[in-house]
């Protein structure tokens, strides 16, 4: 049956039951005025913001983790002063980002630092990326630190340099170890894109809210929003599981 005809028939009822009422709300939030299109517009923004933020986050995270690990692994009595300064900057960055709410960071960036910018979606993506970088850095650093120090010692005792030992011995093992945490961070990032609507970033929540201001019925638009995020996360978790299983196969125990 045609959704619009069904809607009209329920609307004519004097006392619609619970399900008929729910259907009418859903109709207004989805089919009416082709509103479903705007959710998908929001969804594409969500994916776009996630990809940009992820790229920024991974680059920042790798840089910061590299600096901090290299600094901590210097031989005693051989401290490089330049590395010391960069390391201090990295520590301040991680402390500030992890010590303040995402929402507040977005407001500072969106309403103060980039108050006049009209590319609010981009500002949101940048903020998310900077935020994510601090968490990614700590995940990577944790992975590098958790590896048996004997691995680094074995590489160095063979005469391999620090960078070669990192590249061939430490990083491949650390990467496998941190993959689950990185996946979780990616899921958090994906869901946090919803926050950029506070600075008028145009992703799913932004459009859902626009529909609510027209229909005055918040239930259906926000449930639809939640469902879309859930589907995205489920798809991603499935991919992540596949990748982890593949990496484990290469253990060949």
């Amino acid at each position: 049956m045609d959704p619009t005809a069904l809607y009209e028939s329920f609307k004519a009822l004097q006392n619609p039951n619970f399900f008929q009422d729910a259907y009418m709300q859903f109709y207004k939030a989805w089919f009416a005025e082709d509103r479903w299109l705007t959710y998908f517009k929001g969804l594409s923004t969500t994916l776009y913001v996630t990809v940009i933020a992820l790229a920024i986050g991974v680059v920042l995270g790798v840089l910061v983790a590299t600096v901090r690990t290299a600094h901590d692994q210097q031989r005693p009595g051989r401290h490089n002063p330049f590395l010391g300064i960069v390391n201090a900057v990295c520590r301040v960055y991680v402390t500030i980002i992890r010590g303040t709410p995402m929402m507040v960071q977005l407001m500072i960036m969106g309403f103060a630092v980039f108050a006049t910018s009209r590319e609010k979606t981009l500002v949101g993506a940048l903020t998310l990326g900077i935020n994510s970088g601090a968490y990614v850095a700590e995940i990577i650093r944790g992975g590098l630190m958790s590896l048996d120090p004997g691995q680094m010692e074995a590489g160095r005792s063979l005469g391999l340099g620090y960078l070669d030992t990192m590249r061939f011995v430490v990083i491949p093992q650390a990467f496998k170890a941190i993959l689950p945490s990185l996946g979780n961070e990616f899921i958090v990032l994906l869901k946090d894109t919803s926050l950029i609507s506070v600075v008028s970033g145009k992703e799913i929540v932004y459009f859902a809210r626009a529909i609510v201001t027209k229909t005055y019925e918040p239930m259906a638009p926000y449930l639809i929003t939640a469902a879309m995020y859930l589907v995205l996360v489920l798809i991603f978790s499935w991919l992540q599981g596949k990748l982890e299983r593949r990496l484990r196969q290469s253990d060949r125990r």
Partner: peptide
């Protein structure tokens, strides 16, 4: 060359 108590072979 150095040989360790716990071998420290590269498992990867």
């Amino acid at each position: 060359g150095m040989v360790f108590q716990h071998f420290n072979l590269f498992p990867n």
